[in-house]
Amino acid sequence: MSEVKLAAETRSEFGKGAARRIRRENKVPAVVYGHGGDTLHITLPGHELQLALRTPNVLLSLDIDGTNELAIPKAVQRDPLKGFLEHVDLLLVKRGEKVTVELPIVAEGELAPGANLLEYVLNTLAVETEATHIPESVTISIAGLDAGDAVHAKDVKLPSGTTLAVDEDAIVLQVLAAQAEEAPAESDEAAAEA
């Protein structure tokens, strides 16, 4: 898990106009909340935050007016057309604290021979883990799985210190048999011409 340091500035202006001014300066408006404290409105550098958010569940070390806070992203709003960051919600965490996060699922290996299809029933897996040791993803071996086989949440090998936050019997991946298309039936006219 990577920890990225960002310099944050507190902000006192709110609303659509203030947010637009912040974005024109290549910065991103953000909100920091958690641990029963007051919600803190901050501004973060846009480019550095964009690079940091490429890593799922990144741990951000925020320097806010001389105090250092750890936070993880909870909600990220992007422009639907251009993809730039519009707003970020951050959750304060402490070292040793357990948090619930969604980990991307990565399948590795080859399915059994045949025309089978792998279906991701879940794209992410909810787990509870220590805030400063969040795994980047969960790897599931699909080697040798055949049509009708499924991988349940309880079958996934999790890193030490990580527990499931979903039902153990939830299906994560399943293998489906590919359906062959039927050849179009020849019409009586085509058969008569032959």
Rank of each mutant, 00 (worst) to 15 (best):
D169L: 04
E13H: 13
L92P: 04
L111F: 01
V166Q: 06
A52V: 11
F14D: 03
E25N: 13
P159D: 14
E86R: 12
L51A: 11
A150V: 06
H41S: 07
G114M: 01
Y120G: 03
P104F: 08
G15Q: 03
V93N: 06
A107G: 01
V4A: 03
E13A: 12
G17D: 12
L91C: 05
K98L: 01
H35K: 12
L173R: 08
K16C: 00
I72C: 02
T10P: 03
K94Q: 14
E69I: 09
T100L: 10
F84P: 00
A150H: 11
R20Y: 08
G144L: 04
G34S: 08
D89T: 04
R23M: 09
A18W: 13
A131S: 13
G15F: 10
A194P: 05
L40D: 13
Q77C: 03
D149R: 03
F14H: 08
L117N: 04
K98N: 07
L60S: 13
N57C: 00
V106W: 05
H133E: 13
T162Q: 06
V175E: 01
T139K: 04
P73I: 12
E128P: 00
L145K: 15
R20D: 08
R24S: 10
T124Q: 07
L173Q: 06
R23E: 14
V106I: 09
V93D: 02
Q174M: 09
K5M: 13
P73D: 12
I22L: 05
D38I: 03
Y33Q: 02
E48S: 15
A147Q: 12
T163I: 15
E86V: 10
L176T: 06
A115E: 11
A131D: 13
L164R: 05
V32I: 05
V88I: 14
D63S: 09
E9C: 02
S12K: 04
L53H: 14
K157C: 02
H133R: 15
I64K: 13
L92I: 02
E86W: 05
E128T: 12
G114A: 01
V156M: 10
S2K: 12
Q179N: 00
T139E: 02
T10Y: 08
K16S: 15
L125N: 04
H47V: 12
T124H: 06
T10I: 09
P104Y: 07
M1G: 10
V106N: 01
P135S: 06
R95K: 14
E128V: 07
L60Y: 15
L164A: 07
A180Y: 02
Q174W: 07
E97S: 04
S61I: 07
I22Y: 12
A19K: 09
P104L: 11
E9H: 11
I64Y: 15
G144F: 10
S61M: 11
V172E: 09
H152I: 10
A71T: 08
I134R: 05
L173F: 05
A147F: 05
T124F: 02
G148W: 14
E182Q: 01
V121T: 03
K98C: 00
L40S: 10
T67F: 12
E128L: 00
N68D: 14
E13K: 11
A115S: 14
G161Q: 11
T129F: 06
L40Y: 14
H87D: 10
I42Q: 08
I64M: 11
P45Q: 15
Y120M: 00
L40E: 15
F14L: 06
K16D: 11
V32H: 04
V127I: 01
E3L: 07
T39C: 14
A177G: 08
D79V: 07
Q77I: 11
A107H: 02
S141D: 14
E48L: 07
